[in-house]
Design a protein around this nucleic acid. Structure first.
Lengths: 175, 175
DNA sequence: CTAGACCTTCACGCCGACGGCAGGGTCAAG
DNA sequence: CTTGACCCTGCCGTCGGCGTGAAGGTCTAG
């Protein structure tokens, strides 16, 4: 199929598909005319890409992960198994951390809502970063915490004090 | 305290604190010299800001939320209760959706790892967007699904087809 | 008085994932 | 052949949350 159809079926724009190709996430055939020709499997591939992008993985990471997606049972001879596996574990841990952060933020919102809703404050404890109250009065669904999955590092440091090391700019703002 | 101390205690950079002020999230006193003077409570406030930022709320949203944070029992006469509450609920729902996305992505990673780890594929089902396998062989922790909290809209559309409406540019890329 | 740590206000740079446009080719139907 | 839908390759713009100087004022210890 051509780019427009894939775009519709995968729920993205053609522009995004060209971008994914540019980043090495897709490699469609080409017609003599230059038109890209995609296969059926690319629909799922693109959905997978979207899922991973939505999880905060960047295209470079996805690019090294993707080969394991489309048809399992095809081992590209490159550095797949050990390094890839650690990379996967790393991203998984990052996602879990992210979920913890979200849970914390949601708890904070719940605390604010609980303190704000009954027109006046009822018991209003101090809520440093996340108000812990046993019987949460959230709008729906309570707070639950994942078991503590990856490394549960705690300290908040905005920068590895920005050593004057010449190259190697640090990224990973907050993620 | 001055900006440097607050920065250290809250785990951010002075630059970030100035930025927060610029965005209306903080309003420190000023010494005659122009130096900013912060209070103790600002430490917690900044931590709260970080938590919310980490959850994907932007500074504008946080700005309208924050007044409910520091000292409860102080109702600024503006549009607080009804609109603020819906805003809070909206953001809460967004966070929950985000967590669902993350859970999905993590399940996808687990599926890839499971298919990749045992050196050869074992049963390799097709995994369109998230491989569902009863006995997941993940590294740690299984997959769990939140009860479905906010609106569980399903369709994936990258753009509200970009109507030629003049003003009103749409945002919310992927969030 | 002086050094050095700390502070001030500009103001530009950056990154990722695209959006959007210009200028031009392709293709199927009528 | 023409039309209109679709496609191509550049290439610049955007948005948020800061980083990173630059040029200069303030404060405190010695």
């Amino acid at each position: 199929m051509r780019i427009g159809e894939l775009a519709r079926r995968a729920g993205v724009t053609p522009r995004a598909l060209r971008y994914y190709e540019e980043q090495g996430l897709l490699a469609p055939e080409r017609r003599p005319s230059g038109y890209r020709e995609y296969g059926e499997r690319d629909v799922d591939t693109v959905r997978g890409i979207r899922t991973l992008l939505a999880a905060g993985l960047n295209s470079a990471v996805i690019a090294e992960i993707l080969p394991g997606l489309p048809l399992p049972g095809q081992r590209p001879p490159g550095p797949t198994c050990p390094e890839l596996l650690t990379g996967l574990a790393r991203e998984r841990a990052r996602i879990t951390r992210r979920m913890d952060e979200l849970a914390e933020a949601r708890a904070l919102l719940d605390a604010i809502m609980a303190a704000d809703a009954p027109s006046e404050v009822i018991r209003s404890g101090r809520l440093g970063a996340a108000g812990r109250e046993p019987g949460g009065a959230g709008v729906s669904g309570g707070g639950r915490e994942p078991g503590g999955d990856g490394a549960s590092g705690g300290e908040r440091r905005p920068r590895p004090p920005a050593r004057k090391l010449d190259g190697a700019r640090s990224r990973a703002v907050l993620e």
